[in-house]
Each structure stands twice: as structure tokens, then as C-alpha cells.
Design a protein around this nucleic acid. Sequence first.
DNA 1: CTGTTAGCGCCTTCAA
DNA 2: TTGAAGGCGCTAACAG
Lengths: 352, 352
Amino acid sequence: MNKSKQPTIIDVASEAGVSIATVSNVINRRKVPMAPETIRKVEEAVVRLGYRRNVMATNLSRRRSYELGLIIPHFGGYYGRFAENLEQKVHHFGYHLSIFSAAGMDPEIEQRHLEHLLQRRVDGLVSHGLAMSMHSTQQLVGEGTPLVIFNGWGWPNEIVKMAVNLDFAKASSEAVQHFLENGCRSVIYAGRSKGMGANEQRIQGFMTGLSDRIESTVHALLDAGELGIEGTLDEALRLSGDLRPIGIYTFNDALALELLALCHERGISVPGEIQLIGMDNEFFSKSSYPSITSFEMPVDLQTSLVAAFLMRQIGEELDEENTQLLEEYLPRVTGHELFIDLEMIVRKSSGK
Amino acid sequence: MNKSKQPTIIDVASEAGVSIATVSNVINRRKVPMAPETIRKVEEAVVRLGYRRNVMATNLSRRRSYELGLIIPHFGGYYGRFAENLEQKVHHFGYHLSIFSAAGMDPEIEQRHLEHLLQRRVDGLVSHGLAMSMHSTQQLVGEGTPLVIFNGWGWPNEIVKMAVNLDFAKASSEAVQHFLENGCRSVIYAGRSKGMGANEQRIQGFMTGLSDRIESTVHALLDAGELGIEGTLDEALRLSGDLRPIGIYTFNDALALELLALCHERGISVPGEIQLIGMDNEFFSKSSYPSITSFEMPVDLQTSLVAAFLMRQIGEELDEENTQLLEEYLPRVTGHELFIDLEMIVRKSSGK
DNA sequence: CTGTTAGCGCCTTCAA
DNA sequence: TTGAAGGCGCTAACAG
């Protein structure tokens, strides 16, 4: 055996009394016809030596890394679930997923991670709508590496081949309509400008939801990131005068929960005076008091689509299931953006 | 996939009119003396060609992967924060972190991930207290790869060089004492047997906290995983008779929140009739109604220690800061287990 | 069916 | 200071 501790394919070959090519063959290329006796000998040698193939050498030789990169803003809530889920999906295709958090939405960190991933020669990239400029992205990724975006809007096709988005606009519209049906006389959107595209989509849907009642209904777009949680509530109350109930649609459940806590503190009745709708359907939304109306995120579907599109771009064979999935959703692609519906989960905070 | 278009070190060499060894030298900024002129030529060629070093080739040649593996039960809450945090830490040492979720605590999945990580020739491993048998772990990891555990108890030194643990026992003891000081006449631990070692540590601390009042105080250890959330509350109420208030210490904040929701539903006053203490200090614990008393997890400190110990084992030079950190905590190591204190954050659910 | 051999892209002595 | 050459462990033609 070699001087280094870990046995190599050479050790296995000599142990089994065959050539290294044969060992390589039985290890991965089962298509080549081989004598069962040879296979047995090799497999036994592998076990006896505790041989473990070296992925670095394999991939260098194959000229593919079989690695995919994922960039998300952080590991919490939805993004964490997304990452965990995607890892499973791509594993089925034989790929490894390298996950990076961009520390919120820091363009520089994004860039650093991207560069690193490219040095690793990842075969494909998945990212949330980047905060870094499209120009930098273009330069970094170039034409080389397939890139699929999720929850990113307005990216040119030259950079991003496909964007798999949750339809926040539609959901937001539904939220507003839900408020109006519930008799809300004032509706507020408490957003986060740092949410970038996702925030803009919500604003757009919010306004659409108001539609013909846009004149007759008090409404406003607030930035909770800027106003702070107290400021947001104050402003909502001020703008609404004595109109009740007020419907506040928040950027996410976390924000809704914080507003709820503040309402408790001030003795404001939810849903009596204020109704709340969040987004993400986090664990705590069901168990908070009162429970918070929210939108369920179809993470599983989204990661399936992301994986399927990416695999197709890379040139991987898709199985029956994934082919069908793509065929089903392809018609729903506009340009290169796909929209997935969200389901509203109505709970106590919106008066049910 | 025109991967062939990616420039190599050879392209850079000929572009700069030097040998590949020289290029390698300037890229790695070795101690080898070099003419400033040569450095400039090479650096210019690198930029001009858009050269990006191939990590696979580099690491194969170096016979180190500069990659570390992390196995966690899932990406949510504490574990997600841990992963994100550790990634940052090891990055400073020039290491890449590959993160895997073991889908709860599935031994088979753990094993699969471990095997994969070993095939990638990771230079070190970090894992939560594994659910898989010590025997399997021993066989897989052998003597080869440094392994640091976090929140794992009772692992033999031959397998695990260091365990960096949160002191759940001590915290649990404090929780019980807090209940007793608050006048609780019955104290219950609502645990999760699936929590393995972490659960056992809590039980141990729970009993310790009772100490001399163990005879005079109604107490019980419940398994919320088995009884379900309703069953747990029912049982707590039944065991306590009309003793009030009841102190329920839960395995984590999520469980506390669910119990809280149930109390609301049934009109049971918290903290009047039931007091609650959780663990993890999740985001929602502060904003729930009432807010939940919990323990803050010192993730940052824990990952720092994990990283420092692992780096030392790998033979990496530690900087001043990390050396100091180790020196500070080394005295607190028992055997090869280190304990980190948790801080109780007292909130409304425990009567404050 | 099995073996030979030329790479994959980079690092690292050792000479020059 | 720089360059030539021999690996690192494995894959994939191409012979035999």
C-alpha cells in the first residue's frame, strides 16, 4: 500500500490482481461488459482495504465538479427550508450543494461567495434575487455557468436562464381583497425596502388588490425597516384616523408577530381594531395568540422546479417525473420567469 | 458547456511569458523571492485572461481538500444559526464548509452524509451528537479525520477529540429553581426523547434543581413527543391536582409556544396558573403573548470554540485571538468535554 | 473482457 | 529568480 494512509485505486488494483482501469470500470461504469468474477474480486478488495474514492480526483478527471452553488440571504425560516430541500433534490441527480449565506443582502459578500463558487467550478448556480448589480453578475458568471434565480424579477435572459418565483403580487392582491371583504376601512402595507424585488412585487399586488376601491379606501405603503416597528404602528394608526378595522399586510410573519406584540402591549384588539396578514407561514404563526393569517410557501414545489430547470440546462437526463413537472409548468413561464401560486391560510388575526 | 474555454495556469504562463511554476508562485504568494516585474506581468495576464484558479486541481495537488463537513439535524432555529456562523468562522481559516441535514435524527442519513463527506476527503468534521451508533462512527471515521462534536455527551475520546457542549444540565437546574422561587408548587419537564443526549442533560439538571425539595414538590418528566402536545398538558394538569401555579419547563421554545397556544384555547392563565420556560431564545419568544422565558444560546462563542479546536487538530496556526480563546476555555474542559453557560432571559411566561 | 496510457490543472522539489 | 519535471488519484479512449 501507499505511504499515505488512504488506499487508492492502485492499491485496490494490485490487491485484486487487475488493472486500475478495471477497478475504475467496476466502480462506476457498469455499462462495460465485465466478468462477474472480476467484479467480485474488485469489490472484495475494495471492502478489504476500506477503499473510498477520492472525489477531488474523480471530478478533476471528469472535468465536472458535480457541485452546485446556492446563495441565500440567511439560513432562517423559508430560506433554510429552501436550502435543506434543494440539497435533497440535487442529491438525487448526483450533485453536491454548497450553500452560502450572503449575510442579509450584502452585495460584496454575494460577490465573494460567487467568486469562490466559480473557483470551485460549480456546474450550476442557484440564487435568490441578488442584491449585487446585474453588471457584476454578468461579469462574474459570464456565459459559462448556468444560473437559476428564485424570487428574482427583471433579470435579463443573458444572465439568468430561468427565474422560479413565488407569485407575491397575486398573493398580496388576495390579502388586500381579504381585508376589504372583512370590512377593513383602511389597509396598510408594512414592507421592507431591503426585501428588494420581493418587496416591490408585494407593493404592486397590494395596489392591484385595491383596484376600483382605490379611491374610496384609505391605504398606504410603509417601510417598516425605516420606521421601526413602533413607528410603523403609529403611522398606521395616524393615517387611519378613526377608521376601523385597519388591515395591515406585512412583509413577513416575523413583522406581523412583532406588530401583534405591540398591539398587546398597547391594548389594541386584534382582530377587532387591527387585522393582520403575514407571509411565509412560519411555525409560530399558527401558535401565536391570536394566530396569524399567512401564506404557505410551496418550498417543495419551488425547489423541484429549480432543480429540474437547472439539471436540464446542465444537460442531465430528466426522469419521467421531472419531465412531467417541467411540461406542466412550462406554459406558465412568461419570458423566462415562472410564477408559483401561494395559498392563503386564514387564521384569527384576520378575523376568522 | 465550453469548460475548455476556462483559462488554465498554462495559458497564464504563456500569456505572461513565464513558466507555470512562476505563475503558481505569484498566485500563492509564496515566500519565494520574485522580481516585481515578474509579479506584475503575471498579475496582468491573470486579469486579461480572466483566470480563475481551479480549486479541485489545487486541492488534489495539495493533498488537502480545505473542506470541512458539518452535520446537523435540520436547518431551523439554533442549528441554522450555528451552521451560518460556523461557515463564517472557518472561512477565515481558508476552509470551505459543506453542510448536511440529517433529516431529524436519522442514523442512516447521517451515515450516508458522513460517507459522502469522507469521499470528499474533508480535513475535519463537525457534528451534533450523532444518532448513529458509536460503533458505526468509529468504523467510518476511524483514526483518520478529526471530529469535533457539539452538544454530544459520553463519546469516547478515540472517536471524538473534543465535544463543545452547551451546559443544558446547569440551565435546567436554574429553570427549576426559578420556578420554585416563583412559588410553583408543581414542576414538570416536557421533553423530547428524540432529543437524545440534550434531553438527558435536561432531565439530569431538572432533578438536580429540585435537590432538597424533591420530596416536597410534585414533579414529573413527560415526553411530549410521545404524549403529543395536548396529552402533555393534560398529564401536567392531572399530576398537579389543584396545586398552582404549575411550572412547565420545555425542551425548546417551539414546544413552549405550542403549550401556550393550548392554554389560550382552554382559557388557562399564563403565568397565573401555568408558568413556562423554554430553551433556545428563538425570535418568537420575545414577541409571543405573553413573552416566553428562555435561555439564550451562545452560538457565536460555541462556533468559535468548535472552529478553534478543529483548526488546532488539523494543525493550522491559530492567531492571537483564537489562542487566547482556547487558553481561556481549556481549564473548563472535563475529559474532552467543554461546557458553555447559558443565560436565562426572564420574561412574562414565568411571572416576571 | 481487460490493460495501457494520456491527460485533468495545479503544486513543489530540485536544478540551472 | 526562474524553469523543467514528476506527481496527486482517477477517467476514458484505444488497443489487445
